Simulated assay, not measured.
Amino acid sequence: MAEKRVIAVVGATGSQGGGLARAILADAGGGFAVRALTRHPDSDTARELTALGAEVVKADIG
């Protein structure tokens, strides 16, 4: 199987970014991996994304 391409999702613990990250993660055959960018990588939401298979990274672009 080919290596998955990475999609970075800014604001992945918020409503819009979180929905996008979860949709990508739910598509197992889609060929994409999620790199979730968030200011709070230790939050419950970030931990949920990690459990779903996302790579969670601390990033504050504000």
Rank of each mutant, 00 (worst) to 15 (best):
M1H: 05
A2R: 09
E3V: 01
E3C: 01
E3G: 02
K4R: 12
K4D: 07
R5T: 02
R5E: 08
V6F: 00
I7G: 05
I7H: 08
V9C: 06
V10N: 07
V10I: 13
V10E: 00
A12C: 13
A12M: 07
T13R: 14
T13H: 09
T13Y: 04
T13K: 05
G14E: 08
S15R: 15
G17V: 13
G17H: 10
G18M: 13
G19M: 12
G19W: 00
G19F: 10
L20S: 07
A21H: 05
A21P: 09
A21Q: 08
A21G: 07
A21N: 08
R22I: 00
A23M: 07
I24Y: 12
I24L: 12
I24A: 09
L25F: 12
A26W: 03
A26E: 12
D27I: 01
D27S: 01
D27Y: 00
D27M: 01
G29I: 01
G29W: 02
G30S: 04
G31H: 03
G31R: 04
F32D: 00
A33T: 03
A33E: 10
A33I: 02
A33G: 03
R35D: 05
R35W: 10
R35S: 10
R35T: 04
L37A: 15
R39D: 04
H40C: 01
P41F: 04
P41C: 08
D42E: 02
D42Q: 02
D42R: 03
S43Q: 03
D44G: 08
T45R: 15
A46F: 12
R47L: 06
R47F: 01
R47S: 09
E48A: 12
L49R: 09
T50Y: 00
A51L: 05
L52Y: 10
L52I: 05
L52D: 12
A54Y: 05
A54P: 14
E55N: 13
E55A: 08
V56T: 10
V57E: 15
K58M: 08
K58T: 13
K58W: 06
K58F: 04
K58Y: 14
A59G: 10
A59W: 14
A59Q: 14
A59K: 15
D60L: 03
I61T: 13
I61R: 05
I61S: 11
I61Q: 12
G62H: 01
G62T: 15
G62E: 09
